[in-house]
Computed example of a mutant assay.
Amino acid sequence: MLPKFHYEVRFQKPGKQALRLPFSEATWSGSRQEAKRTLAVKTNNGRDRFWPDVNVDEGDLIQLISFLSGTPRSLFTGMIVDLGRTAKGDINAVAYDFGFYLLNNDVVMVSTGEAADQLLKRIFAQHGIPVGGIGAMPAVEKQVIRGKSVWDAVVDVLNQVFRSTGVRYWCWVDQGKIYVGTQRGQTIQWKVQQGSNLLNAERKRSIADMRTVVRVVGSDSEYISVLHDEVDSINAKRYGHLVKVIEIQDEDRGNKIMVAKQELQNLNRVKEQALVTSLGIDDVIAGTKIEVYEEITKLQGVFTVFGDSHTIRPGYHEMKLDLQMEVNGK
């Protein structure tokens, strides 16, 4: 039995009451690599006198609300940033959630080599961005951050942590607050499977981004000194020498082997991805985990959702998920 999908889109002008916005289609999407989640709404304001007047403008607040559980639940709140109209009366409104402010504010800051979580808190505090939660993280290199957006500065810091520890941290916005962690929280382990809610599945393996050699060089601008080469001889023989060069500061030269080993571990792998299309689940968005079972592609395991796109029409909800396999996936 199919779920009884029921959604509403509402918009609100400053100081005014929220109004229902009739729509033909809404696409709600996001990715772990994007600062913001997006809501794209298709509606119409043509010559039909029985159709409600659609008086939306850029800057209006917009919400996507689900009634699937019987009570209203806000899935998205954001601001209309793009608004298109056609001669037929079609209106295409695109809204971003509050991750928009991470992209449109630049950072000027000096890092003294403090812990990454403390640096991130200073970056967010500089622009008054509320923090929901940031766990303890190791120290990062001394640096001057100038002219980068908040989002780009945060991504740089998290990449430094990943290169030194092999632990991937992510940044996301939830209910207007910033969170940084290894995994987005969830209370239910959702499942999609053939014969039930799964509509389609694809799977691929790729070595396009693989590296089999990591070469560590010094930071001297006058000449290049190769400090260490870390090689996976088995994969280098099979796939060839695929070299990644990384530069380290003088004070980090003592850690050159450890840095090279960690970087090679991060890059010397076959990347595996899966794409699935299924009936929509409100809670399944980028950063959550989902269990998948499909016989032909042999997708059997728990995956992390890397990117999602939910298409919602009156009475219908479909989602497309870009997945990355977890350790227990097969």
Rank of each mutant, 00 (worst) to 15 (best):
H228I: 10
V161C: 05
G166Y: 04
R163E: 11
Y169M: 00
E202M: 15
L158F: 08
H228N: 13
A208V: 12
V150N: 08
A153G: 09
N159I: 05
T187G: 08
Q189S: 12
C171N: 03
C171P: 01
D209N: 14
L198G: 03
S219M: 01
D209Y: 03
T182F: 01
Q193L: 07
H228A: 12
T182V: 09
R211I: 07
A208M: 12
Y169T: 00
G218L: 02
A201T: 06
Y179K: 02
R184E: 02
R168W: 02
D156R: 14
F162Y: 14
T165H: 02
R184I: 05
Q160W: 13
E202I: 13
V161R: 08
L227E: 02
G176K: 11
K148C: 00
V192C: 11
R215Q: 13
D152I: 12
L198V: 04
V150Y: 04
D174I: 02
V167F: 11
V216N: 03
D156M: 14
L227V: 01
T187M: 14
Q183L: 08
F162S: 08
A208S: 15
Q189E: 11
G166F: 09
V226S: 04
R215M: 08
T165I: 04
Y179G: 01
N200D: 13
V213T: 10
G185T: 12
Q175R: 15
L198A: 01
R215Y: 03
E202G: 14
Q186D: 07
R211C: 11
D229E: 13
K177C: 08
V155Y: 01
G166S: 10
R203H: 12
H228T: 11
S219L: 00
K177S: 13
I178A: 01
Q160R: 15
G195I: 07
D156E: 14
Q186Y: 09
V173G: 04
D229Y: 09
V216Y: 02
D220M: 06
D209M: 06
S219D: 13
D209L: 11
V180N: 03
L199M: 03
R163T: 09
R211F: 13
Y223F: 13
E202R: 15
R168I: 02
Q193V: 00
G218I: 06
R205W: 10
T212D: 02
G185L: 06
M210Q: 10
Q183M: 08
H228C: 09
D156P: 08
D209P: 03
S219W: 01
V155C: 00
I188C: 06
S149Y: 05
D209F: 02
D174E: 14
S164K: 14
Q189W: 03
R184F: 06
I178M: 12
W170R: 09
A201R: 07
V180I: 11
K191F: 13
Q193M: 09
M210G: 01
Q193I: 01
W190Y: 10
V155D: 05
A201H: 05
V154D: 00
Q160E: 14
G181V: 00
V217N: 07
K148Q: 13
A153Q: 09
D220F: 07
S221C: 07
M210I: 08
V157I: 11
V173E: 06
I224H: 08
N159T: 12
D229M: 07
G195P: 07
Q186I: 02
C171G: 10
D156F: 11
K204R: 15
I224K: 14
Y223W: 12
Q183R: 10
V173P: 01
D152L: 11
Y223N: 15
W170V: 06
